[in-house]
Design a protein around this nucleic acid. Structure first.
Lengths: 204, 204
DNA sequence: AACGACCTCCGTAGATCTACGGCCTTGGCG
DNA sequence: CGCCAAGGCCGTAGATCTACGGAGGTCGTT
């Protein structure tokens, strides 16, 4: 029960039970949902894990689920399964960002293998997300004014240019800069710029 | 004949002829190859265009072709077509990086639509490649010493720190910095850092 | 030998950044 | 109301960077 977390989503109770049982035996910590919408309600606070979802479901279908996760910037790996699979559907699924696409009847070994492949992505994503989160928290501790100046600094504006743009004194800009460097724990502008890029405030 | 370029690869002469004829009518500038290997011989010098290839071919198959193009860092879009397509094959094709995967018998409208979607990628890739190339050219015009200092600057080192690290005068470092900013056409350290990231010299 | 490219060093003046302390306003709290 | 913390503002002083010019030495090429 304490193994890797699996979010199993299928509208058919029989499938939920069968696959859930199988994955539990393989040591996964399975949590089941009867629809993608139910899962999405708790998705934002969900622990890292791999999603196994049916494609054809009432409400949000499996492919739309992948898109919605991307929209929310939740990078949980998704393995889609489908009973009436055809080639165009498989193509659409992978192109939308699903990690794998498996036909029913599901071969146990095949599914577990797919999950394990997807698992590798979790760790990489988690590390990145954790670093990202620390960064975001630091950014949130900046005041509105500081954020404003942060953006201008990382775009390459000098303190002088910023002071003119905001119609305030250069000293004021500089004291804000000092605060920014302090709060963001950046010892140089170069580091600050990289943080801004990771935060998506400027493009590389 | 002067429309978008298409590289049509299929081992069956009849398909080459039929699809080639069709695409020509649609205004594409079609060039045909009887095998992926034949195409790969000229791939490095190929003009930008979209590849339309069969999956199942003697020698390098369609999916391997995509991998080989990626390995050579050639970002030509690829539309794969297949007669005996199944879901796993389609999944493998898209996951390997193909832009689309279409089943035979090929629907003309469908293929043209796929090509046009892939076409959009050409322009984006070309723009990026062009910008990247300009940047690389500028970097190559830096002397070895300048590159060394460039790396230290974008990592956040001050001129003073650099002078100590390299055991040279601060003035020397500063004159190198001036040269670097000049040659890289960067008006601020922030811009220089972003260039360094695009050049892959530092991670975001 | 003459040349150009490169690396090195230097000084000065002005722009820019950093560090430290002080003033003022706003908004919550006893 | 008085108090206080937080945010915004500003000044002085010292460190750092930029810009402009000048100069000597090495190395490979012509």
């Amino acid at each position: 029960m304490s193994g890797p977390r699996i979010y199993l989503i299928d509208d058919q109770a029989s499938i939920r039970h069968a696959l859930g049982e199988m994955l539990s035996v393989f040591g996964f910590d399975v949590q089941t949902f009867e629809s993608a919408d139910r899962f999405l309600e708790i998705a934002d606070t969900a622990a890292p894990g791999c999603i196994v979802a049916d494609v054809k479901m009432p409400g949000t279908d499996g492919i739309e689920l992948v898109g919605e996760l991307a929209r929310r910037k939740l990078s949980l790996p998704v393995v889609l399964i489908s009973g009436h699979a055809d080639v165009p559907m498989a193509v659409a699924a992978i192109k939308s960002g699903a990690d794998d696409f498996i036909e029913k009847p599901v071969d146990d070994v095949e599914l577990v293998a797919a999950i394990n492949r997807a698992q590798a992505r979790i760790f990489a994503d988690e590390d990145r997300r954790r670093a990202q989160e620390g960064l975001s928290q630091r950014l949130e501790r900046l005041t509105a004014r500081e954020v404003e100046i942060f953006d201008l600094v990382v775009q390459g504006y000098t303190s002088h240019a910023i002071s003119e743009k905001l119609a305030i004194s250069i000293r004021t800009v500089e004291s804000h800069r000092a605060q920014i460097m302090e709060k963001m724990q950046a010892e140089s502008v170069a580091v600050l710029v990289r943080q801004a890029i990771r935060l998506g405030r400027i493009s590389p």
